[in-house]
């Protein structure tokens, strides 16, 4: 099983002719993902490595049956690109772009949702169902197929944790980076029900960081609904309040969003919180026994 992306996923890359878009299109294709189209306004009719490039997402959907979009366009064009993809009828939009104005996201979120489309990101590494499809920018060889679902707000920290899991023989069903911005298309709480229903996902790792209360909401949902082993890791215990730690959303403000508060809620809900990234796989093995 796995969720959201698999061998049937047909990807259109928005911004395929840009530096990042072209590089990651090749990486995704090499991983085995079906990239069926690209979109760059003004470059319709061209090809990139044999992949047809269109001016609009509508053509990518009607001519190539794309059902998932990955967005690499510059931040000031991202709102337009996300809504265009949703309106054209793809069921999933994955936005990699960093630095999108928050007020653009306040519009993008309800608009994309109004077309019944799910949004992952922005400012995220995308998602991967190991061995099936990668719709993102993560190094594929870190991940191995298996029973552990991962939802994370971070990129490289997720690779770190997945690397340990893979080495311990704990492969992954689907790994999703939800992004480090204050306004993201999907939070833990939006994705947890999908993993809960996935027969292949037998355990869950939740990787969080300072800022907001999404981890607390996830802890509550897990306690009420999820009956598989869950382990969490939270980054940012040593972050000073009021400082943006790299991610736009990673900031402790008004006493809210501290790592301590998140860890406390998770542990209160009987979800162990690893103290180091390496400890995640140890705790998970303990829980699965």
């Amino acid at each position: 099983m796995s969720i959201l992306v698999d061998r049937n996923t047909r990807v259109v890359v928005q911004g395929i002719t840009g530096k990042e878009g072209a590089f990651h299109t090749r990486q995704m294709t090499a991983y085995g993902t079906q990239v069926v189209a690209g979109v760059t306004p003004g470059k319709g009719g061209q090809e990139m490595d044999g992949i047809p490039v269109f001016d609009t997402v509508e053509e990518a959907v009607s001519k190539q049956e794309a059902n998932t979009s990955i967005v690499f366009v510059p931040s000031r064009f991202a709102l337009d690109a996300m809504v265009e993809a949703a309106e054209a009828g793809v069921s999933l939009v994955v936005c990699i772009t960093e630095g999108i104005p928050v007020h653009d996201m306040l519009r993008a979120f309800p608009l994309v949702r109004s077309y019944g489309t799910r949004l992952i990101g922005p400012n995220c590494p995308g998602l991967i169902s190991p061995g099936k499809a990668k719709v993102g920018i993560m190094p594929g060889d870190v991940f191995t197929p298996g029973p552990v679902g991962i939802i994370s707000r971070s990129g490289t920290l997720t690779y770190e944790i997945a690397h340990h899991l893979s080495q311990a023989g704990l492969g992954q069903s689907t790994v999703i980076g939800i992004g480090g911005d204050p306004v993201v298309g999907s939070t833990y709480a939006d994705l947890l029900p999908l993993l809960a229903e996935d027969a292949e996902t037998e355990a869950l790792v939740l990787v969080g960081e300072i800022g907001g209360t999404a981890e607390e909401e996830a802890a509550d949902w897990i306690a009420a609904h999820l009956h598989i082993p869950v382990v969490a890791y939270i980054a940012g215990f040593s972050a000073p309040p009021g400082k943006r730690m790299g991610h736009a959303g990673a900031i402790v403000s008004g006493g809210e969003g501290t790592a301590e508060a998140k860890a406390a809620r998770l542990e209160q809900r009987d979800i162990p919180v690893a103290r180091t990234p390496a400890q995640v796989s140890e705790l998970l093995e303990g829980r699965r026994r």
Partner: peptide, 11 residues
Amino acid sequence: NGAGLVMATLD
């Protein structure tokens, strides 16, 4: 490299 990884390193 990466905000989450650097925060984890500080921790």
